[in-house]
Design a protein around this nucleic acid. Structure first.
Lengths: 222, 222
DNA sequence: TTTTTTTCTTAAAATATGCTTAAAAATTTA
DNA sequence: TAAATTTTTAAGCATATTTTAAGAAAAAAA
């Protein structure tokens, strides 16, 4: 991750640069506003740390200009201007956070991490050997070949994979997949296990879904 | 915009609620942690304001649990726990900002606005293949030809595009577009999907809105 | 081995889902 | 208030899914 620090006090700038480099960021420093803005606009950075009072161009000006071109790249103010009014002005100029000096390096670091937090909402996909189950798209693939499943098939496979390595009793399966909470004598489970094994071609050396006679089924990688 | 405040001090809670309502937010308050978490998980809120110390469940626990399900919804801590270590813990639990008491309401408000700031996607308008959706003018075009849609049609299309690449369950659609929060058996969705497909001529090689039988619909570029 | 139990497999029956249309109800506009 | 538009309900239809059921196969018990 690349960080641009725009800070005219050399001591603070060095302290920040060193600290962030220890956290394996790639850090560039600009010591005055005009230079800072030009560097920021190059688009090479994942995040900006701005002082407010700077020679040539203030942090506010940098932030405002920068936002015209880059809507998303996070900007954090790090400044001695600590009044409420100033904080609000800083945030209104497009910054994502506003930290007042004196500051704790560890808190700054954490706030940087917050801004760089991947904001992907996607849930983790479930896998079983070469089988992948995408909970966003309800797609199931085996060796990247899509295999269309019906709702009940999907739901059963999902339950088995979520309990990968553990035996799923028939009673738990009928509860979880069919939402039936009383004793119920039926052969549906067998039929659906059969359908899964057929569609997913789970035979011989790829028998990911095994029968535990008298109990239920277990999904496991072999 | 809907805000959930979880705060056990009634005075502060009322103060916040009133202040935010004056800014035309819709505000709900939970006075203890367990209740707060349940409300948060309902998925009805655009942002959470959490106290740390709460009866039953701490703000940290709420935030951690909430993040398991909602990766994106912003969370702001508002707490008297003001040490650096605590701040870091709060942010690490998944919060987006951490404000220490005593606080200025105007700064809190500004920080809320920062979190709710529309992302680039919304600024540039939503698109789905050659279809463009302008949220300001409520115009929809396909290949730059305007296609008039009714409100419900627009709203449904907007929801699908906002979740582009992800399946929208029927239950989520009826919640989001029709604002119905209980189990409701209806065929309106089908009718409106049909209308959209017709008006937007989504057939054959342009079938941007696909049916996931037994689940819902998914919008995707092919 | 024979019997019993459990699971597998298949096909048909029952059910559910989604598409399409038309008309009724509600809402907005003139 | 009447007309136009939008929204919702409802029903028929085709099709996909789910369930039942029954015989075959396999495993365990006697």
């Amino acid at each position: 991750m690349r960080v641009l620090i725009v800070e005219d006090e050399i001591g603070i700038a060095n302290f920040l640069k060193q600290g962030l480099e220890e956290e394996s960021f790639v850090v560039d420093v600009a010591y005055e506003g005009g230079e800072g803005l030009i560097m920021a606009l190059s688009g090479e950075y994942d995040i900006l740390i701005l002082d407010w009072m700077l020679p040539e161009k203030s942090g506010i000006e940098i932030c405002t200009e920068f936002r015209k071109k880059f809507k998303k790249t996070p900007v954090i103010f790090l400044t001695a201007k600590d009044t409420m009014k100033e904080t609000i002005l800083g945030l209104q100029s497009g910054a994502n956070d506003y930290i007042k000096k004196p500051f704790h390096f560890d808190e700054l670091l954490e706030r940087i991490k917050v801004q760089l937090r991947p904001n992907t909402e996607e849930l983790e996909g479930l896998t079983l050997g070469s089988i992948k189950l995408n909970l966003n798209t309800y797609q199931v693939t085996k060796n990247n070949v899509e295999i269309p499943l019906t709702q009940k098939e999907f739901s059963l496979l999902e339950m088995l994979i979520r309990n990968k390595g553990k035996v799923c009793k028939r009673s738990r399966i009928i509860e979880s997949v069919w939402d039936i909470h009383f004793d119920y004598n039926t052969g549906v489970i067998d039929v659906y296990i059969n359908a899964l094994r057929k569609k997913l071609k789970l035979s011989g050396d790829e028998n990911y879904i095994q029968t535990i006679r008298g109990v239920g089924y277990i999904a496991k990688e072999l």
